[in-house]
Design a protein around this nucleic acid. Sequence first.
DNA 1: ACGCGAATTGCAATCGATTGCATAGCGTTT
DNA 2: AAACGCTATGCAATCGATTGCAATTCGCGT
Lengths: 351, 351
Amino acid sequence: MSKTVNKQESPSTSRRRMQMTDIARLAGVSVSTVSRALSGSELISADTRERIQTLARQFNYTVNSVATNLRSGVKRTIAVVVPFEPGSRQSFADPFLHGMIGSLADALTERGYEMLLSRTDADRLDAVAALIDSGRSAGVILIGQWRHHDQLNAMAARGLPLVVWGAHLPHQDYCTVGGDNVRGGQLVAEHLLEQGRRRMVFLGDWGLPEVAQRYRGFVAGLRAGGIHLSAQQRMAVPFLAESGRQAMFTLIDSFPELDAVFACSDLLAMAAVGALRERKKQIPTDVAVVGYDDVELSAHFNPPLSTVRQPIHEAGAVLVDELLMLLDGKTPPPFALLETRLIVRESSRVP
Amino acid sequence: MSKTVNKQESPSTSRRRMQMTDIARLAGVSVSTVSRALSGSELISADTRERIQTLARQFNYTVNSVATNLRSGVKRTIAVVVPFEPGSRQSFADPFLHGMIGSLADALTERGYEMLLSRTDADRLDAVAALIDSGRSAGVILIGQWRHHDQLNAMAARGLPLVVWGAHLPHQDYCTVGGDNVRGGQLVAEHLLEQGRRRMVFLGDWGLPEVAQRYRGFVAGLRAGGIHLSAQQRMAVPFLAESGRQAMFTLIDSFPELDAVFACSDLLAMAAVGALRERKKQIPTDVAVVGYDDVELSAHFNPPLSTVRQPIHEAGAVLVDELLMLLDGKTPPPFALLETRLIVRESSRVP
DNA sequence: ACGCGAATTGCAATCGATTGCATAGCGTTT
DNA sequence: AAACGCTATGCAATCGATTGCAATTCGCGT
């Protein structure tokens, strides 16, 4: 390759990217001076500095942050990882994730970081280590711990800067941020009991730590009210609308007397409502439905959906702040429990 | 700064990242050899190669892609930019965007690219040029052209690798991918007329090119059926549920005889359904509602929402492929129109 | 006129990799 | 035995910036 050839040059896009040497040549100074001028160093006389900055602006020059990072060793990119179930690849579909990503994007932008969005096989969570090992990002924010607490602990042991949205578990060496899932489940149980419901069903994959905690809280709350949840009153389903629909049909068939549904995400709850309608059940008269997350659409659903609110906006900020603490060498609290409250709307309230 | 000090070192995270020199030392060879071995070069003897690869795996070493990119000049990061309205910052809330991001994430991952997700002020679209100028990404995929066709043309003129999801406009120097919005609007008009509706209202911000085209198609379709749309039969609203709700109330008040709503996104349509219910209108008996996008939830909404499907999965692939063509110096078609079809569900179909 | 410090600016090493070219080692051919 | 060729490896320049230190210029005191 000849030295004068410009990489990524192309017939149509033949303009080479401006670089510091170009500005230096134009200004008649050295690159050192340009570098310092652009970073606003006091070492450079005010008028040289200004002249160079004007020049840079004129030519749309921006310092190459890749080179800067390489030299300075400081990275301003954070990877946000959204795992997908290896079978369906569809985890991305839950609107809750969308809210989470938006919230993280905001929090990172505010603090001057870039966001690298990455999807990973939920069974190979440890693959995210490569994002850090390869220097692509300074740290990782992972949405959900899925079934691999162990892999996460291993990564934490390697000292990788990692913060996880999820449940706080025993023997946890990594840092989590999440809602109070047990409490959330309990609130739903109490509310449904209060509404006079007795024959509940539970929808959600309790193989996942967060869901497991919601389930535990729910069962505990029911037990306190003297109600027991039998094996036919629950179904383990992934966070997919169609799965929720099918599961709901199965539950209606096997437990037709049901009068309340607790779904572990609003998406599942909405799918459940759809399935119940198809079977001519009135919501909430025949069956009360409560979801989880309080995504934006829940309030506009028909009927408006009762749900457990997760403070998404705050979540992004806390996740980012804890990760930045880690990067800064400080030790963030091992877990943060965010406020969790029940929002009662029409889907579970009989007037 | 002393030479032995390790950047981003910290009390808790004191482990320096492995690098090529370390592997070289461990293997007793030079870095050149390691570099070649890890990239699988035939120049290195098979057994040295294997020995080095094993070593790298053992120590969790991954080549620093930042350094690689700097040297090779090839970047494998694409920026996906989601503009937000400067007032609300909320553009992120529409589930359509979520689908789009997921689809792009898939397409990019499949092709071995990373995705940098970035939010920008919709009034400063030209700010995305900095993503390229600064070398953070090789190219940009922008979701929507918003009100700044001019800024986009200027960027295209600078030769920036840019592909836009949106409407095909006259005098367009950049490359777009989008649905056939005019046709979409027209399909909705025809369908509503066929259902015997005559008093339609339109919900959506026609200041945005895509929406304007849907509006034009809709109006043209109505005109063909001998129907005229007066100024009180439309409202310009941003893609926000609450705005949609309020706009719907206003329309109901100013044009109470309405019997059909065409909303420019499913989010708006769902919000409209909510507002109509609050005013005791039956859907679809009293008022038919049609949305746009066919997001996943639309099928599970109550009633299931009629809508114009945008082929989101295909969209991501096409956007990415066109951008890669640009990066490759080829000239992609100036615009791609993806299949647009009407999905009729219960919200607009009287049995 | 000379010396000295302060204010500017430039030189060159460096970040962590890649790669053209040089070279070392070793077997073959004549 | 000399010459040659091939394979496997190392040297050193390079990507685009940053930064410690050296060098230059200039003003001013004596």
